[in-house]
């Protein structure tokens, strides 16, 4: 029983991280139909900002999160403004190549500044509680609670606020939106800002749980989060959350049942099979042509 609960907790921790990162992919795809391949690298930058804020600036927890979130928001908005906006009318392939290029640029820029893996010092004392065999660490609780709060606020913003309404309208028909008086560039920039900020916070939380970080850490996690977004139905906010937890569950279960080297192989096989039967993802709907 304790063992099952333990694995369940691991699933929630991993799934929360994937879900928060997957939201960045799905939001940008939703509004621009662009796969922001640099998003995994924003997550990495979040982890490095966490390192700088703790190891160099010796800041406490809350300012660390603020530095990481604010820094990645700035970077995300800058990437949109400098790299994606000039290509908005260009063929989608060009925009995707640009996204890949931006990712490689960010990785190598970070590599130039920090050629070695870094060890992030402990920010919060890691307390463990023991409930009849089940070990719960404070970092696990933190990751799950912060992620759920972020997701709940995003869900609220998208469904209930003016900005969220504009974002959904933008996903529906970008050409008509300016005729409503809505500044489209502002809405797109805000969408990137939120996605990037989520990536940055996820990077910080990841660095707290797994404190050895390197400039390439965003690649694999980014791919997985992207796949989580696709599994849930890319462009769909709740789909990204669902996909994140499904991927977290599949990976955890695969590692329980089989040698840990099989983990990614099993996870990706299951996801490929799922996509054969649900090509638009679990909550996705096929895009209908606009008349």
């Amino acid at each position: 029983m304790a063992y099952i609960s333990q694995q369940f907790l691991n699933m929630l921790q991993l799934g929360s991280l994937y879900a928060v990162i997957a939201l960045g992919y799905t939001m940008v795809y939703g509004v621009l139909s662009l796969i922001n391949f640099a998003h995994g690298d924003l997550f990495m930058v979040g982890a490095f900002l966490c390192f700088v804020a703790t190891a160099k600036l010796h800041l406490p927890f809350v300012p660390v999160i603020v530095v990481a979130a604010f820094g990645t928001v700035l970077l995300g908005v800058a990437v949109e403004r400098l790299a994606y906006r000039p290509l908005r009318e260009a063929p989608k392939v060009s925009a995707i190549i640009t996204a890949l290029g931006v990712g490689v640029f960010i990785e190598n820029f970070t590599l130039a500044l920090s050629p070695y893996p870094r060890h992030v010092p402990e920010i919060l004392p890691n307390i463990s509680w023991n409930f009849s065999g089940l070990t719960v660490s404070s970092i696990q609780v933190l990751i799950i609670v912060v992620s759920v709060l972020l997701m709940a606020s995003l869900d609220f913003i998208v469904r209930k606020t003016r900005f969220g309404m504009a974002m959904r309208a933008l996903a529906c028909d970008m050409k008509t939106l300016p005729l409503m008086g809505v500044p489209v560039n502002t809405i797109i920039a805000l969408t990137f800002a939120i996605g990037a900020g989520f990536g940055g916070v996820a990077g910080t939380m990841y660095a707290m749980a797994f404190p050895v970080i390197d400039p390439y850490m965003g690649i694999m996690i980014g791919w997985k989060a992207f796949i989580a977004a696709v599994v849930g139905g890319i462009g769909n906010i709740r789909g990204a959350m669902l996909g994140g937890y499904i991927l977290g569950a599949v990976e955890t279960l695969a590692a329980v049942a089989l040698p840990s080297t099989y983990r990614d192989f099993i996870a990706f096989t299951l996801l490929l099979i799922l996509l054969i039967f649900r090509p638009n993802g679990i909550l996705g709907v096929p895009k209908t042509l606009k008349v």
Binding site: R168, A169, A171, C172, D173, K175, T176, L179, V291
Partner: peptide, 10 residues
């Protein structure tokens, strides 16, 4: 606009 430009998902 021509074609009405309704936001169908809203």
């Amino acid at each position: 606009p021509e074609g009405r430009g309704i936001f169908g998902s809203l």
